[in-house]
Design a protein around this nucleic acid. Structure first.
Lengths: 160, 160
DNA sequence: AAATGATATGTTATATTATAACACTCTCAA
DNA sequence: TTGAGAGTGTTATAATATAACATATCATTT
């Protein structure tokens, strides 16, 4: 782990947030979903689906097939509890899931990531100002923006 | 094509720009590379690698295998002549390849796209102000940014 | 022109990521 | 108690991408 912090409290917080958000959306946080979410958080770096399948298979002592995991990922993505890092084909826990909730119960994806090219440590940003700026920039091109994905690659402090 | 404009002049311009940039980098714009670049431009929408393989196979009347196309895509990507749209696993021509040239002959990727969810029409933006803003935001997180990828999804004028 | 080395392309096989389709299970409300 | 929906299991396969090695092409030197 490249950034020092209380890791367990991250995980605990993520779990509590997940429980709250599931309740809000009348969705069930099943054992499988909780396991997947926790594994993603424990790794604390973008995690590929097949790595996740491996870890999950080991942990449960039985063979987990891809669709099982992909469905679970989709569930967590839809609720904004995790994010997909497109440039890595990998998944990471959302640090502020509540901030992605719209008034209409819809999840808006305005997600920004700083991704270290060396260690793949990934930091999520949330910046309302930047969101607004990108939105209005879109408007000048007569484009109605919905979701925003920003991936900035470079070097984190440790790897520099 | 969802945005009206002189399409042939786009293509012609892209080809001339490619020739110039290849010369600058002492790289060869071979027939294959030119064919691929033109096909990408003719489609004028993000094009998947395997669609490209199909079109290229048809056009040349022989079977083109994936590595051939992927290598060519890599070449064009490296020179900044095309971009990869990560959210679509697809490739599109760069509208302003010269603007990605650094002084040190290195290509910097600060690329922003507006992607229509319905028709996949994709508009490239270049905005130095936004680049700077994202760069300085990265700095506040003690992160040395190199490349920036922004993909905004939503609806274009025609699809709204 | 022949030899050489570097670059480009061809070819075969396979890795990696993701989804389709259908079967089974479990819960909970009618 | 039953049947409808949600969740998960299972098998097969689709879609995207790369590794490894063979061959060809071209420029340069001899």
């Amino acid at each position: 782990m490249s950034n020092c912090h209380n890791h367990q409290s991250c995980i605990d917080g993520a779990l509590i947030a997940a429980q709250t958000i599931c309740k809000q959306h009348n969705a069930k946080l099943t054992e499988l979903r909780e396991q997947v979410l926790l594994l993603i958080w424990k790794n604390h770096k973008p995690l590929g689906a097949y790595t996740l399948i491996e870890q999950l298979s080991e942990q449960t002592q039985r063979r987990i097939a891809p669709p099982t995991v992909y469905r679970t990922l989709e569930f967590l993505l839809d609720l904004g509890l995790i994010h997909r890092i497109n440039s890595l084909n990998a998944y990471i826990g959302c640090t502020q899931p509540h901030s992605h909730q719209g008034q209409d119960d819809e999840v808006h994806h305005h997600n920004y990531f700083l991704i270290c090219k060396k260690c793949h440590h990934t930091q999520e940003l949330i910046d309302k100002d930047l969101s607004g700026r990108i939105q209005s920039l879109s408007q000048t091109f007569d484009f109605t923006s919905q979701d925003q994905w920003l991936e900035v690659t470079g070097l984190c402090r440790e790897c520099r």
